[in-house]
């Protein structure tokens, strides 16, 4: 249990740092910015209390904001992600885990389809909120849509990569 907690803490520290140092400066074709720090929330055990999800989402977002000088944007999106991720986990987890609080979300338990659906939904919520709050208007709906789709796909690629690396160890 302690081991799991420490591992999650590792990711909770590593991902925001990576976000601030690397990912915030990536703007693929001027549109897609990866935000893989959501991954730290995705792999939390199903037994994690929901207030902790919300708090961690806020904290991660705030950390990412500090790196990109956009205080509040990622924090607001992260808080909403923290609220929604437990629901999504319940939605995409196989039926046999319905009442099992010991579930650890990963490709072994959810399988690739389930895990990617779970991750894609959470990332889509986070990225959409992030870009909508950043634009704060719908003057350029097409550009907004390209930003959201591009960032979501880009983030998912990194999350899949992390998931492969985590399971190889």
């Amino acid at each position: 249990m302690l081991q799991i907690a420490l591992r999650r803490l590792f990711w909770l520290i590593l991902l925001p740092l990576l976000q601030v140092v690397v990912f915030n400066h990536v703007h693929l074709w001027g549109y897609a910015t990866p935000m893989p720090y959501v991954y730290a929330l995705l792999i939390l055990p199903a037994s994690t209390p929901r207030w902790l999800y919300v708090t961690l989402g806020f904290t991660l977002g705030l950390f990412a904001d500090m790196g990109s000088n956009t205080p509040g944007i990622a924090a607001a999106a992260g808080t909403a992600s923290g609220l929604s991720i437990p629901f999504l986990l319940h939605l995409f987890a196989p039926k046999e885990f319905d009442d099992d609080t010991t579930l650890l979300p990963n490709v072994r338990t959810l399988e690739w389809t389930g895990f990617l659906n779970y991750a894609a939904s959470a990332v889509l919520i986070h990225v959409s909120l992030f870009h909508i709050i950043e634009d704060f208007a719908f003057y350029f709906p097409l550009q907004l849509l390209i930003n959201i789709v591009g960032s979501t796909v880009f983030t998912l690629v990194f999350i899949a990569l992390f998931e492969v690396l985590r399971n190889e160890r």
């Binding site: 977002g61 205080p71 924090a75 808080t79």
Partner: peptide, 8 residues
């Protein structure tokens, strides 16, 4: 927390 975020 959302209120804090939007205030920021």
């Amino acid at each position: 927390l959302e209120a804090v975020s939007f205030t920021l």
